[in-house]
Design a protein around this nucleic acid. Structure first.
Lengths: 153, 153
DNA sequence: GGTTCGGGGCAATGAAATTGCGAATTGCGC
DNA sequence: GCGCAATTCGCAATTTCATTGCCCCGAACC
């Protein structure tokens, strides 16, 4: 017995279409992958239940929402204890402006993506949020001037 | 005449809900924002037409798709000419594994997000794609060990 | 060769999206 | 404060879509 762990070519097609347009109707999706609507829907539901599809998101235009400043920020911690990491991650998860927080290898521990309306707001994030944490040792800001490619947005 | 440039509180609510669940039914969305379904739908359509909502995406689980290796990679160019930048950007736009490419300030020009099945595949990207470009001077890899927060995925 | 299991298509049913229309609200000039 | 105009709302009708039960087909296995 093969318990729904194989993602075949049709599933790949479905996932590709849904990654491109998460709101495509089941009818259109069925036509694109050359299956009947019912078979398509059952596959989509299976992929959702299996956790391959985690969810759906609307992609918003940052500029039209007043987001004029995007930066990647590396953060180094003073101590490498579990407690320090958890405290930092908790603080970051509360900060609306921090959209991503990645734990990376290298000379620093974290890479953040910060989105704010302007430089003034960024200064507040930099100083009041990141700088206020006792476990933070280094903060380096890389301002995003443009994103020639961004398939996740 | 007010030409759909104001995003009021209701729109904000709608956008927040759609960013959270891009496939919420219009009926449920209407209930959440306390509007009638028709009014809600018209607002959503207006936001789409205005480009505030760029589209919708299914969020996939990388691990379940065989993506076991994610890294951020900084790339420095040898020359800072427009031609060199364009050549580099063209190359990354062709590379499936490069999901994001950001033009940043600092000691290097680019920050990439690379997603591949494993380290072996990454080596190919690193050597054959990035390393093969004549205009690339430096490549630094930061392996992602985890993402405590990622509201874009 | 028969049987069982996984997956597909068809068709009916119920639910949701969509649109026209009249009412209500808001903004603005007087 | 008042009235006009431009939006925006809610209701209801219509169309479209998602969903499910049922049967069929093909492959793997006895």
């Amino acid at each position: 017995m093969q318990c729904m762990s194989v993602i075949d070519e049709k599933d790949q097609q479905i996932l590709r279409e849904l990654a491109r347009d998460g709101r495509i109707s089941n009818l259109d999706l069925a036509e694109r992958v050359a299956l009947s609507p019912s078979a398509t829907l059952r596959r989509v539901q299976a992929l959702e239940k299996a956790g391959v599809i985690r969810g759906y998101r609307a992609v918003l235009d940052p500029a039209k929402l007043g987001i004029g400043f995007v930066a990647y920020v590396t953060v180094g911690l003073a101590q490498h204890t579990k407690a320090a990491q958890e405290a930092f991650e908790a603080a970051v998860s509360r900060a609306e402006a921090v959209r991503e927080c990645h734990n990376i290898t290298g000379t620093v521990e974290y890479l953040l993506r910060v989105e704010v309306p302007d430089l003034t707001t960024y200064k507040r994030v930099h100083t009041d949020i990141l700088g206020a944490l006792p476990q933070v040792a280094t903060i380096t800001t890389y301002v995003v001037m443009g994103s020639p490619k961004d398939t996740r947005a």
